[in-house]
Nucleic acid binder design. Structure first.
Length: 778
DNA sequence: ATCCTGATTTTTTTT
DNA sequence: AAATCAGGAT
């Protein structure tokens, strides 16, 4: 290898490339042909290894840029990795396939779609679209969607697809009435998708596997095109992805655990140049079909695989690592590894008990402010991250951050592309691109309202069904639709006239840029006009969102040649966009996200809130006995922290609006006490008005206040029993304090325990449930 | 066809 | 507490 390097024209680059890598890292980077397993503990520099390896392969002429397929977990990660590789190579990497599994599959399918009976304009349905279609399939079969919810059935179908089982195969192995129902729905759903020229997320993987299994020449073509395949986050791959890698790299003979043969057997000869990177301790996507065994069994799959373990951590203090090691040791099995760091002990892990989620948020924000102002290193807000188990938990944090005027960003939750107006606009484009797209049609046909209601839409759908024609064709001839009223006919004709005109602009020889098309759609369909007519702040916000979308379209046009294709790929990109992709760094914003979204990231200062049993580990995981995945998630959270780690829990937290008592997470007990610094709040009565020193000041109850109910456990303070959450009666004109909204005055008391409060902070008037809202009187 | 209201559900986590 | 949904009124 060294001799090879000496003669290499890129020799100086190579040397530079290997400098600063530790021994195992270097081994992984310079590994030549054949299978390679990199077991990369958290913070051990795996992205570095991946990017350096890609550059190494190119510099040593083992692969052209275009011969590399590198799979990452998010588009953002792919983007970042591409940037790094380009800097190392000193030139662009056009032609290198550096993307997510889903994006790579969509791209392959785009060019081979006809072989599977699709057109290249096929639509990609997201979860919500897919669910809607599942619901329709259920109803179409005359099954009560109350009995079996679309969510439950879709999740069964999804996991079947991840296991590469089609409806027929699924139907052959049903073991319960529920599964029998799923099998029937699955069959209808499958047919409907195909008829609509549409695929859901799982199909992207499944259909690509189908394609490669059915057409040996296609498989060969791609297998040869990708001389080197690299996969990041291998511990979170599912069976379909595993099979896909087999097909591309010519992988192991059938493994014992493998799913029963389906489709035809393909000989799996290939170059076997597969390098996977992962950490079984960070496998956190089991719920979505990820199978840790893929990484655990890699050495069985490839007995000749080179295995490299990266155990030196360059990210965190030894204290943080020791805590992580101790916690994860409670999981059984797994690949033994011991993370260590040269960064010194650092500060202890801060564990804090707070009264409720509001106190918790106040503590977190207060601590962030304190650190930014007082810490000698003067960290920027961008160095701070707050993690939580579920998206809903961001709300209280956000309220507090807004009130204290701390700039922040939230990753996830309601995504930009999931907002109704954005989905509508995109659905218009989808329907224009794919005239068979029934889901988009039903979404936009009466949005804005044009007098085409459910019944009329149903008639058009049924008509298209019976004739077996695309929905566009059925709708374009309203007179032929049986039973359609005169008014509906007219409205539909008018709508389809507009659509036909728009469609002409994309089929022209001189195709319209995406940005312009979007603008044309929004104005000609009357969408923006309808919003303007609403004259509400909300509608104004929607219009602004749409303007943003048009801007995204324009940016797309700036980087893409206008062609019929560009609309298709624009739609594909939007469909596969993830929350994590919107992350901005270096903008001095505190970052809020779920623990799942935190994978692969690092921050100097990390807060993990809601460390309570039932919250984290999540109660549902406890029910299902899957604490180990939750523990891995905790492990992921802890190992994101570089310098300081705060773990907080609340004694009381509102769940579904009802106060619930909580106990510290079992994971906290698993951290050796000598690594922590614990501060427990003195027990406190109820949520008293925030005193500026944050102290727990006991408030006296008002004479005449009536407790309607006692909720939660009793706490003791000063030896006096105080109900945890007393419910009180409110009087008009009374001054009150709300933990999130601040000071206010009661302007109304309504039946059913509702109080109306006008808040001084923002002048807003809000109706609050006295029973649940944490309002305290003065 | 559309709007309103009361009931019911929602919280795992996401490409 | 908020969002979604179904059923009924207009």
């Amino acid at each position: 290898m060294l001799g090879e390097m000496a003669q290499n024209p890129h020799a100086e680059h190579l040397q530079e490339l290997l400098e600063g890598l530790n021994e195992p890292q270097r081994e992984a980077v310079t590994h030549g042909e054949g299978p390679l397993l990199i077991l990369a503990g958290a913070g051990s520099g795996k992205t570095r290894v991946l990017t350096h390896r890609i550059a190494f392969l190119v510099f040593t002429d083992q692969a052209q840029a275009s011969e590399i397929l590198a799979i990452t977990f998010t588009n953002k990660a792919a983007q970042e990795m591409r940037g790094r590789v380009e800097r190392m190579l000193g030139h662009g990497t056009r032609g290198m396939w550096l993307m997510t599994f889903h994006a790579a599959c969509a791209r392959i399918l785009r060019s081979e779609a006809e072989r599977l009976g699709y057109t290249r304009q096929f639509t990609i349905y997201d979860q919500a679209d897919a669910r809607r279609l599942v619901k329709r399939s259920i109803e179409g079969l005359g099954i009560d969607p109350k009995r079996y919810t679309p969510v439950a059935i879709h999740s069964q179908i999804s996991s079947a697809k991840n296991r590469l089982r089609d409806a027929k195969e699924y139907g052959q192995m049903v073991g319960s009435y529920f599964e029998q129902t799923v099998a029937e729905v699955y069959g209808v759903y499958e047919r409907e998708l195909h008829r609509m020229n549409a695929m859901d997320f799982d199909d992207l993987l499944f259909r690509t596997v189908n394609l490669l299994e059915l057409f040996e020449e296609v498989r060969e073509r791609y297998a040869q095109a990708f001389r080197h395949v690299l996969v990041d986050e291998y511990q979170d791959t599912n069976h379909a992805q595993y099979r896909l890698l087999q097909l591309l790299t010519g992988s192991p003979p059938t493994r014992g655990r493998q799913e029963p043969a389906h489709g035809r057997r393909v000989s799996l000869e290939g170059h076997r140049n597969l390098a996977v990177v992962g950490d079984d301790s960070q496998s956190i996507y089991g719920f979505r079909g990820a199978d840790v065994r893929n990484i655990l069994d890699f050495q069985e799959d490839f007995p000749d695989a080179r295995v490299v373990k990266l155990e030196q951590n360059y990210r965190s203090t030894q204290t943080i690592l020791s805590a992580a090691n101790a916690v994860i040791a409670n999981n059984r099995g797994g690949i033994a590894k011991r993370l260590w760091s040269e960064l010194g002990e650092g500060e202890p892990i801060h564990v804090r008990e707070l009264e409720d989620e509001y106190a918790e948020a106040r503590f977190v924000v207060g601590e962030i402010e304190r650190l930014i102002d007082e810490d000698p290193t003067h960290p920027s807000r961008s160095e701070v991250a707050v993690f939580y188990r579920t998206n809903a938990m961001s709300r209280v944090l956000e309220d507090t951050l807004v009130r204290r005027e701390v700039a922040y960003q939230v990753i996830g939750g309601t995504k930009f592309y999931e907002r109704a107006e954005i989905k509508d606009a995109v659905a218009y484009l989808s329907l224009l691109a794919n005239p068979q797209d029934v889901v988009s049609f039903t979404r936009v046909v009466n949005s804005p309202r044009r007098g085409i209601g459910q019944t009329s839409v149903g008639r058009v759908l049924a008509h298209a069904d019976t004739l077996g024609i695309p929905i566009w064709e059925a709708a374009a001839n309203p007179a032929q639709v049986p039973g359609l009223g005169a008014a509906a006919q007219k409205a539909l004709a008018r709508f389809m006239g507009t659509m036909a005109e728009l469609r002409r602009s994309i089929n022209d020889d001189d195709p319209i840029p995406v940005g312009e098309l979007l603008e044309a759609v929004l104005s000609q369909t009357g969408y923006v006009e309808a919003l303007e007519a609403e004259r509400t702040i909300e509608a104004q916000g929607r219009i602004e969102n749409l303007e943003q979308l048009v801007q995204v379209g324009r940016e797309w046009d700036a980087t893409t040649e206008p062609s019929r294709e560009s609309l298709d790929s624009f739609l594909q990109q939007i469909a596969l966009m993830a929350d994590a992709d919107s992350r901005r760094d270096g903008e001095s914003l505190v970052t809020l996200m779920t623990l799942h979204n935190a994978k692969g990231l690092e921050y100097p200062l990390v807060f993990v809130v809601g460390c309570e049993d039932g919250v984290f580990p999540h109660s549902r995981a406890l029910d299902e006995g899957d604490v180990e995945e939750e523990r891995r998630l905790f492990y992921v959270g802890v190992t994101r922290a570089m310098r300081a780690l705060y773990l907080t829990y609340a004694r009381r937290r509102s769940v579904f609006g009802a106060p619930t008592a909580g106990l510290p997470s079992r994971f906290l007990d698993e951290i050796p006490p000598e690594l922590t610094e614990v501060e427990e709040q003195p027990a406190r009565g109820w949520s008293a008005p925030v005193s500026s020193n944050g102290g727990a000041r006991r408030r006296r109850r008002h004479d005449g206040d009536i407790d309607i109910a006692d909720v939660g456990h009793d706490d003791t303070w000063d030896g006096v029993d105080v109900p945890a959450t007393p419910i009180r009666a409110f009087r008009l004109g009374q001054d009150v304090t709300h933990p999130a909204f601040g000071e206010g005055v009661v302007t109304g008391v309504e039946p059913g325990g509702v109080v109306v409060v006008r808040f001084t902070d923002d002048g807003s008037e809000r109706k609050l449930m006295a029973e649940y809202a944490q309002v305290s009187g003065h």
